[in-house]
């Protein structure tokens, strides 16, 4: 499915999500062009995870619209989800499945042909250095290996939009570097990445654009130099602290 040019990869329009009295996401607007690398920052409880879950279809917005490659997620959820991959903050694994069985299951869910899926799995496992553990039960993997496996599962169906919630949790320096490089390479080929993180360094180095949210509202958005100009400070850390201090 190739969308016509000009259609944003991801579009959130006035999205609201309430949990009882708490407004976790408050009229949020986001617009990501294809091939964009976007970082979502915010203090704990700002609503980052909730936003990403709204995009992935795990939650339904109370108001507003979510569009993935121009497809309305509420009206055609299956068509909207097909090009999307989501890696939640907790890797969504089955403890008692072997690593390779898990990949088989995920590939089946996205209807990837068996041969293509097996080939891709071999590539991904090799690249993520999980090859030796392919017959291990998921529950026996270390936290970092689980994170890698979740990433491999997300990439096995060749998504066009990748949504990652704190993707580098638990990864060692080598793996983190490799994942970062790989994601950058993929975005150059047209993959759109939206990720949340607390590691400002990562956001600073990777992200083309950065959004800061607090109390579910978008406080600031733009390239790093734009944010610097607006909030002052030399590093993203200063920008983040200034922006969130002004917001509360």
């Amino acid at each position: 499915m190739m969308p016509e040019p000009g259609v944003p990869a991801l579009c959130l329009a006035d999205v609201v999500k309430r949990f009882g009295d708490l407004i976790a996401v408050d009229r949020l607007n986001l617009r990501l062009a294809r091939g964009e690398f976007y970082a979502l920052l915010g203090p704990n409880g700002a609503g980052k995870t909730t936003t990403l879950r709204l995009i992935s279809g795990l939650l339904r917005p109370d108001a507003g619209r979510v569009e993935i490659l121009g497809v309305d997620a509420a009206q055609a959820p299956e068509r909207a989800k097909r090009p999307l991959a989501f890696v939640p903050d907790e890797p969504p694994l089955y403890g008692k499945l072997r690593l390779i069985e898990y990949l088989e299951f995920v590939a089946g869910l996205w209807a990837v042909p068996a041969d293509a899926a097996m080939r891709r799995a071999d590539e991904l496992l090799g690249w993520l250095e999980l090859d030796a553990a392919r017959r291990e039960l998921c529950e026996n993997l270390s936290r970092g290996m689980q994170q890698k496996l979740a990433l491999a599962a997300a990439l096995i169906h060749d998504p066009q939009v990748l949504v990652l919630d704190e993707p580098l949790t638990g990864l060692d320096a080598h793996a983190a570097r490799r994942v970062k490089d790989h994601l950058l390479a993929l975005t150059r080929r047209g993959l759109t990445v939206l990720f949340s993180t607390h590691i400002l360094d990562v956001a600073e180095k990777l992200a083309g654009r950065i959004g800061v949210i607090q109390h579910g509202r978008l406080l600031a958005e733009g390239r790093l130099d734009q944010l610097r100009a607006r909030y002052g400070g030399a590093s993203l850390e200063d920008v983040f602290l200034n922006a969130t201090a002004a917001g509360s």
Binding site: E104, G108, A114, R135
Partner: peptide, 25 residues
């Protein structure tokens, strides 16, 4: 106990029928 690392020699043929995948999962 950690699973034995015995690599099965024959490569497993993956299924793509969703019913079978869910049944086994």
């Amino acid at each position: 106990p950690r699973a034995r690392q015995a690599r099965s020699a024959r490569p497993m043929r993956w299924r793509s029928s969703l019913s079978l995948l869910f049944l086994s999962k």
